[in-house]
Computed example of a mutant assay.
Amino acid sequence: MDLPSYSGSQVRSPAPISQRLPLIFRRLHRFNQMDFEQAIWQLGYLCLAPRRVYRNVYFHKQTKNTWARDDPAILVLIAACLFVSAIAWSFAYSYSARQALKLALFMIVRDYLLTGLVVATVLWFVSNRLLIAPPSHSSPADSVVEWAYAFDVHTNAFFPFFLTIYIAQLFVLPVVLKDNWVCLFLGNTLYLAGLAQYTYGVYLGLNALPFLIRSELLLSPLLPLFTSYIISLLGFNVAKHVLAVYFGS
């Protein structure tokens, strides 16, 4: 018995790993093609009017057939901001040049990228399992949350958090480390604001997708967050403990 023959069009070799990466990561080396002006505009509005940033999502979907951004300029800018922040924190803690570079690497890779990979995966899984609207004639055929878009949501939510925790906290560092209730209140409120900004940013990002329902569930972490904040005002200095763990002091 002759074995069935297959034409070349029927045999598909697996795509290389590089092709499986989201487009935004595959273009990280193309600096000359990055639109830094647009990225700076987005970072500004993420702090002032984040909903305006997500209005461009619909245009991007119509023109490029994807919800996720394909320009990594905003990733480069956030990495640069984290690098500068690490240098500033290194001065505050009298770090050596080697320690400063290590801190910058940790902030970029661990705090932003690795955390983003975990958060994006969780958001991607939860959104596609729990928040997708039931199929209907009016819903688009590709009603699915892209993993790359979930990472975009993390990126957009991370920047206001970065400004609050990495920058604003640095300016009030001598104050939040003092042992009195007013300083404790200031430091704890700073962390509440940063985490609330991140949570709200995640909600805005997924709420912008027209095929998701019950996106208000993404705001549910605010309740335990605010409850923990109230309890912490009884005497737990969040900033002091977090910085002690983060910087090992």
Rank of each mutant, 00 (worst) to 15 (best):
P210M: 12
G205L: 03
Y191S: 12
Q62F: 03
S228M: 12
N156F: 12
V172L: 09
F31P: 05
L190M: 09
L28P: 02
R20S: 09
T115F: 13
F25G: 04
N180M: 02
H154F: 11
T121D: 06
I24T: 09
S5I: 11
L218F: 03
P50V: 07
A148L: 07
L217M: 15
L114W: 12
V144T: 10
L190Q: 10
R110V: 15
L105A: 14
A80V: 11
V172G: 04
A15C: 02
I231D: 04
V53K: 04
F59H: 11
Y198E: 08
K178W: 00
L209K: 04
I40N: 01
Y54P: 00
Q62D: 13
F159W: 15
R69L: 10
D152Y: 05
F247D: 05
F91R: 06
V119C: 10
R110T: 13
L46E: 14
S90R: 03
D35P: 00
S18W: 04
A88Q: 15
A150W: 03
F25D: 12
E37H: 04
L173Q: 14
L209R: 02
T164V: 15
A88N: 05
L23A: 13
L195H: 12
N237F: 08
A168V: 13
L177G: 10
A150K: 06
H154I: 06
E216D: 14
L23W: 04
D152T: 08
H137I: 07
S228A: 15
P135S: 06
P134V: 01
F106L: 11
L123V: 01
A244V: 01
L3H: 10
N207M: 04
L105M: 14
K178T: 13
A97C: 00
N65W: 01
I74C: 05
I78Y: 05
S85P: 02
A80T: 13
